[in-house]
Design a binder for these strands. Structure first.
Length: 484
DNA sequence: TGAAATGTTGGGGCG
DNA sequence: ACGCCCCAACATTTC
């Protein structure tokens, strides 16, 4: 009697890769035929359905993945609807699969959904298993001596440093063949690409997909890792890894990144320090997931309860000027325009523009988080939430509220030759380096020679930083007064 | 992963 | 030679 072919379904989500994909490895090792599906169900993501930039990336990532799967003789099944569970049930019926496997996600709504599906299908006799493809350490595996989650990065870092190193990545076995899916959608049917030409320049800086991720990582390891500590702060240079979207969509395995970085030979103390600093940044990402998992309401609510009473201002006009890069502070405007044009912003500049929104304009960090969510190709709920609550002073291990960035000084310090501002704010490009970060103080002659007409072709500062800073500090102490 | 305000120190100009 | 003042440079405190 011939044994019946055992069929499995692998449900891909933010793990759009074939390499070091635990769910896929498991299915291929234990089943004869493996179907691979992607389900696009934005309404199950709570308030955080993919933003416009994320959708652009997702489209291209799925396309790249389809090609990878085709090389293995299969096809990626793409489906859409209003319930992942309904779609999965249909696929299990159509394919006759008896096992379904996926890699875990950590957002609150998604976890609730996944657990329900796991219970339901498990009770009906399907083999259902989830795996870790996204993190070095599961959020529930890291806790303080008292068994509580961490809220401060440094002790979190110390703790994970004592844990076992993350396991080595495992490639998909050479011979693994994937099955052909019938009846899926065309990628175009998901309507992920923007109607306007907004995203036309994205592909100049970004190449979604597993191979694009591997290239970005290799280039970073070769060119920038060992000078990361200083290089990461200069926005005009390629001193950062720029792998964040690849990590978000799981095109790159975090375990692989960790081990490749750790294995780079660093000959000088400075090089070793750079390597360590980068590993620490990877641990910040873990910390963000740790916080998101243990404090699932933080995407919309401050972790530090007192901040619920903070007197945020509401101004559509000012928020809009910030989004457009028309604040009158060159480094802020450069960052916001880089974001709009490329779907990316250098991390140093992210901190500067965030501080400006939250402290100088006193507009809620949540408005900033929403804008980044819609416009960043690497938008990630854990990192975005941690970053914005850090900037707002209301989150885990946040900057104290009185730590206010001075956009002029930040520009002069980290964009000293103004290459970054000249690139993204071309109307200031002919202004001398001496004045370019503070055009409102430039002598009229210098402005005229550079063709800058403040208030006409480049705005005057929308707020006076010195005044805005002291008002922010006053609002902060008012909040503390009212809550204590 | 700040910046401003305030305090301290020490060298040099000068009477 | 000495004390005084100025102020840059650095350190510390405060927001």
């Amino acid at each position: 009697m011939s044994k019946q072919s055992r069929k499995a379904l692998v449900w891909l989500r933010n793990d759009l890769r074939l390499d070091d994909n635990p769910a896929l490895n498991f299915a291929c090792e234990n089943y004869d035929e493996v179907f691979v599906a992607y389900l696009y169900v934005p309404r199950e993501e709570g308030d955080w359905a993919p933003g416009a930039a994320s959708k652009w990336w997702l489209h291209h990532s799925l396309k790249a993945l389809s090609e990878r799967i085709a090389e293995r003789g299969g096809s990626l099944g793409v489906f859409s609807g209003d319930s992942s569970e309904k779609i999965l049930r249909r696929l299990l019926r159509d394919t006759q699969a008896t096992g379904v496997f996926w890699n875990r996600r950590y957002e609150f709504h998604v976890r609730a959904r996944d657990e329900q599906i796991k219970r339901g299908l498990g009770a009906e006799g399907f083999e259902v298993m989830s795996f870790n493809a996204q993190l070095l350490w599961e959020p529930w595996e890291v806790s303080t001596g008292e068994g509580k989650p961490y809220q401060v990065f440094t002790p979190f870092w110390k703790k994970v440093s004592t844990l076992d190193a993350p396991s080595r990545p495992r490639a998909l076995s050479r011979g693994a063949r994937l099955a052909r899916f019938e009846g899926g959608l065309e990628l175009e049917d998901l309507n992920l690409l923007p109607k306007l030409s907004w995203a036309s320049e994205f592909s100049e800086e970004s190449s979604p997909g597993e191979l694009g991720g591997a290239r970005a990582l290799q280039s970073f390891l070769k060119n920038a890792l060992l000078s990361y500590k200083g290089g990461r702060d200069v926005p005009s240079q390629r001193g950062t890894s720029r792998i964040s979207p690849h990590l978000h969509f799981g095109e790159l395995s975090i375990r692989k990144v960790w081990h490749l970085v750790s294995d780079v030979e660093a000959k000088t103390p400075a090089a070793r320090e750079s390597r360590e600093t980068y590993l620490k940044e990877l641990a910040w990402r873990e910390f963000a997931y740790h916080i998101l998992f243990h404090f699932p309401e933080t995407p919309t609510r401050p972790l530090r309860e007192a901040f619920s009473a903070f007197p945020w201002r509401t101004s559509h006009k000012e928020l809009s000027a910030w989004k457009k890069g028309l604040t009158g502070y060159p480094i802020v405007d450069a960052g916001m325009r880089e974001l709009w044009r490329t779907g990316y912003m250098h991390n140093r500049v992210r901190m500067i523009v965030a501080s400006f929104l939250v402290k100088d304009l006193r507009i809620s960090w949540l408005e900033g988080a929403k804008w980044f969510w819609d416009t960043l190709l690497d938008a990630d709920l854990a990192s975005n939430t941690l970053g914005w609550q850090w900037a707002g002073g209301c989150g885990a291990d946040a900057a104290p509220y009185f730590r206010v960035f001075n956009p002029t000084l930040q520009g002069e310090k980290f964009d000293a030759d103004a290459d970054y501002v000249r690139r993204w704010v071309p109307e200031l490009s002919r202004l001398s380096t001496k004045w370019i970060h503070r055009p409102w103080e430039a002598p009229p002659r210098a402005l005229a020679d550079a063709g800058v007409m403040l208030g006409k072709n480049y705005p005057l500062p929308m707020v006076d930083h010195k005044k805005a800073r002291s008002e922010a500090l006053a609002a902060f102490s008012a909040m503390r007064g009212s809550s204590s």
